[in-house]
Design a protein around this nucleic acid. Structure first.
Lengths: 224, 224
DNA sequence: ACCTGAACACCGTTCAAGT
DNA sequence: ACCTGAACACCGTTCAAGT
């Protein structure tokens, strides 16, 4: 945490740094997708040699972790603590949902490095709200990890949906197409899915997601 | 579905086929991990040329989807329908949890191809139990997708935990080490996480997971 | 129809050499 | 201390040529 207290002014504007590399990686991932992040493309963007990056970052895996950590931590930083505990949980959930929706590549990363900086912060922030809600201490771990699992799971899945079709389509058309696919399923093998196809087409992922949070929160508080 | 009704006897024992390729891919993934699946290793194992595989399968992405679909569908097939709806949901959840735990590489795949064959089957099977539980039709889609998201999310995360340390450690030691790490966290920044470290060390992921299912199921039925 | 394996266009990573 | 960029050991995928 206490790195170096040296004058920031000394830094050359164009000097390479871990942060600048991570920032460029995020841009590349957002613009080109996961396959767009290569050390060659990255070094071109940073106007340096491919090997220079290795002076600041151990390898690609570490770079991906750093990039997704940055996104998650930024999203968490944007969520205040002043609202009621219930509302704060909803805000954290919505913040993550939106951040992962905007940067879908974060999803894969969160699962590759669980309990790392980013996930741990989510867990901590959620946990504090549970304390404020007077959830009994014995249920703290279970409640917090259920919520975190749900939040991350749904957010990642929602973001993945956006890439189901190639070329990508907007939400409206996406739902239309999946609904059509569901309606065309075999009547004997998929009676349930066929029936809910219309419901699916009209649903709002984000609203349903927040509904799910309320549902789990209700269960957590009630069963305490 | 109605492919070719020709005599199966005609097939040479050693002939390449989509199934044989998928089976070999699963073995490779289980033995060597995701990075172990290359077309070179695969063709060596199948005693053929690298290009031969492309006659049966379009590309690596399709191969990964086929391999993870196979694992999930097999797990679902092992779950009966005879128990009570509630119990069947638990059984499906437990079956997926165990399957993904045994084949951790499946996790990444499920998110890459959502609403594909495998996930759709999970959704359908869960949905039918909700119908049996008399959940009102209007809540069908929401309830089923909440459950599926939770089941897949937790299972994938649990499987990812197994690879947090390198070299891999057993469950006991894993929990011990994470707990130690949590206890060493900054007291001001991570008060909640520090406090639940001991709870974490003693918890049983699988049991908590099934507890979470009951919790959501209770919420689904009650709020109907 | 199905298989072979060399060839192509990429990768991540290393490292001697520079400043 | 930090950067360069060629070189190495890989990849996935294609495709002319075989049977």
């Amino acid at each position: 945490m206490a790195k170096k207290a040296t004058r920031a002014a000394e830094r050359r504007e164009d000097a390479l740094s871990r942060e600048r590399i991570v920032e460029a990686a995020i841009e590349l991932l957002d613009e080109e997708g996961e396959s767009g992040l290569t050390f060659r493309a990255l070094s071109t963007r940073l106007a340096t040699g491919a090997g220079a990056i290795y002076w600041h970052i151990a390898n690609k895996s570490e770079l991906l972790v750093a990039a997704s950590d940055a996104i998650v931590l930024r999203a968490l930083a944007d969520v205040g603590d002043r609202a009621s505990p219930r509302k704060t949980v909803r805000n954290i959930a919505a913040g993550l949902f939106d951040a992962i929706d905007a940067h879908p590549w974060v999803g894969a990363q969160l699962y590759r490095a669980p309990w790392q900086a980013a996930m741990l912060q989510v867990f901590e922030r959620i946990g504090r709200q549970l304390q404020a809600l007077k959830v009994p201490a014995a249920a703290h771990f279970r409640s917090a990890s259920t919520l975190v699992s749900y939040i991350v799971g749904v957010s990642v899945q929602n973001a993945a949906n956006g890439r189901l079709f190639d070329p990508p389509v907007d939400r409206e058309e996406f739902l239309e197409r999946v609904a059509d696919r569901w309606k065309a399923l075999d009547a004997d093998e998929y009676p349930f899915t066929r029936k809910v196809a219309t419901q699916m087409r009209k649903h709002d992922d984000r609203a349903e997601f927040l509904g799910g949070i309320d549902l789990i929160l209700a269960g957590v508080v009630r069963s305490s």
